[in-house]
Design a binder for these strands. Structure first.
Lengths: 337, 337
DNA sequence: TTGTACGCGTTATCAT
DNA sequence: ATGATAACGCGTACAA
């Protein structure tokens, strides 16, 4: 209570004076450089403690030309994309990976026009040392912008167009193929799919995996309808499928949200799962466990994606040239298929 | 392709020289100060365009003593808390509110010991102009730290101990009471509850609302078990309730995740919802729609919480003294009760 | 090992 | 209206 509310924080100069050494020496101690006598070192450290000195990150950033932060940029039409727990996992992964460094995480939603502009400024002003980009649509200007700005950038999910040198992705084709093959192995022959957005690599890759599996199995049946990865859309898609292809006996949904929506519609329509219609999702989110019945799904290591993106970015910032990384998926068998 | 990969960005001095004016004039144009002739102004603006000048935020921050960023700090035991879509919504709300300013959002998980330390440094180094704190447990040192650091701070949810001057919350007591009263109005007399963590204000407040409703209704019945807001825990809690109070005819769960877990257990146990056991949740997340049957729940405006926290913080930073804000909840009637 | 002096790119003060 | 000049707090060549 006796402390003034906002006493000015001590500067390194004051620390040096308090310790009776030069500011350069104090600076050296701070960055634990080797060339400083143990006597001075201790004096400085004591002064730091006594004065409660904390370095000013802004000044340091200006001097070192390093922002001390990286950005996670999430594209998409709507800020509501964040309602998808997927991103929370990515953020958690990135955050934990960043904990081992002294970099901060700034989060950008490039969702509105205003948001796009701000991201552009962020890149051009070099307010961060690197960026991670996610959920880019087909010809999103962001990817171009990031590359032009010369800021180290890694992509979450291979961009559809343009060749991004650095990205972390999962093997979507294979995951989707295995999911579909699982349905085939169950004896299903009229397997429909609810795809993701087809102007993204994920969307196309998972559809391709579905196609590959059908082709390999010699199944001519085709029934697909596009989705946007939301539950609501999954419901609409399932309704559409039921009217257009009432004879279907299985559905591969490109993610769990849509699969959950499909489940509800099937339930309402009186189709039992999995006996009449088997359903497989993709992601392995909590919702796949909660769903009724629990979803068989292609699990992808989302936390790892965030973590590996971060590590790749750190390597990039360090001047290395990391290779793209493809993480594996695993089929989790539950009750829906 | 002809551009050098990393050409040095122009400084304000270079802009000034290019425009044939003093750097002071250029600076004035940048911050559109009034005292500059329209001739020079145009010259500077042209130079800015031609050179592609973008101000250096770090240098500006050092000069103005303003970081140009605010932090959202999320406490909790486990980084997995972010799997809860709740936070995504808060982030989205904060992010959109921030879009109208030129402040960035840095995200901090104060989940590990390492994370706590980093948050501490963040606060003390004044790397941000203000902080928003969420999910603090009972006597979390963070709240004390934030106040001591003298950094503008607003809390998401009233802290349990200590008096936080600035916070945004919802009327948890009332929401819980209305939920329980709804169950009472349905004729239920043996209403159990799955509480949230009792070392948080949310947890206690919702339990209190439950108690109030029962008391008002003259129902002596009491059956409660604690939870931690996860679906998994909701399942365990429901199992516990069923064995200890097999005669219950309704459950008020302190959030949707736990309610969804409870639903699954009830389903397995062969209890039909809502006829045998009515269930009400809290939050109004997507999961409440997906659940089977769809959950009756107390909706809270999560996006608004993020938005209002941000606005309050901005006011605080601007030197105002905003009042705590209590947002309303609304009961959404679906099929589970 | 030690310290001086300059640079980082802005904003802000205070004369003119 | 205008423009030097001094902060802002720290890193770091360079010389000693």
């Amino acid at each position: 209570m006796t402390d003034e509310p906002t006493r000015r924080r001590p500067t390194l100069d004051e620390v040096a004076e308090h310790a009776g050494v030069s500011r350069t020496a104090a600076s050296r101690v701070l960055n634990n450089a080797p060339n400083v006598s143990s006597g001075k070192r201790e004096a400085v450290q004591r002064a730091i403690k006594e004065l409660g000195y904390v370095p000013n990150p802004t000044a340091r950033a200006l001097a070192t030309q390093q922002a001390g932060a990286v950005a996670l940029i999430i594209a998409g039409e709507d800020p509501a994309v964040l309602a998808d727990p997927f991103y929370g996992q990515v953020i958690a992964g990135a955050s934990t990976a960043l904990e081992e460094t002294d970099l901060h995480l700034v989060l950008c939603l490039a969702t509105s026009t205003r948001g796009q502009i701000r991201v552009k400024q962020l890149l051009q002003s070099r307010a961060v040392d690197g960026v991670m980009l996610m959920s880019l649509r087909g010809d999103d200007p962001l990817s171009q912008l990031a590359l032009e700005a010369g800021v180290p950038a890694v992509f979450g999910g291979k961009p559809l167009h343009g060749h991004a040198p650095f990205y972390v992705d999962v093997d979507n084709v294979r995951g989707a193929r295995e999911a579909t093959e699982h349905l085939v192995s169950l004896g299903r022959t009229r397997i429909a799919t609810i795809t993701g957005p087809l102007d993204t690599d994920v969307g196309r890759a998972r559809r391709r995996g579905y196609h590959e599996a059908l082709t390999l199995a010699g199944l001519p049946y085709r029934a697909e309808v596009g989705g946007d990865f939301t539950e609501r859309n999954g419901m609409a898609a399932m309704e559409s499928l039921l009217t257009r292809h009432p004879d279907l006996d299985a559905v591969f949904a490109a993610n769990d949200n849509m699969a959950a929506g499909a489940l509800r519609v099937l339930h309402r329509a009186g189709r039992t799962v999995p006996s009449e219609v088997a359903v497989v999702g993709f992601d392995g989110l909590a919702i796949s466990e909660i769903a009724d019945p629990p979803l068989t799904t292609v699990h992808q290591p989302i936390r790892d994606i965030g973590r590996e993106m971060t590590r790749m970015l750190l390597a990039l910032i360090a001047g290395e040239k990391p290779s793209p990384l493809i993480l594996p998926t695993t089929l989790i068998r539950r009750e829906s298929a």
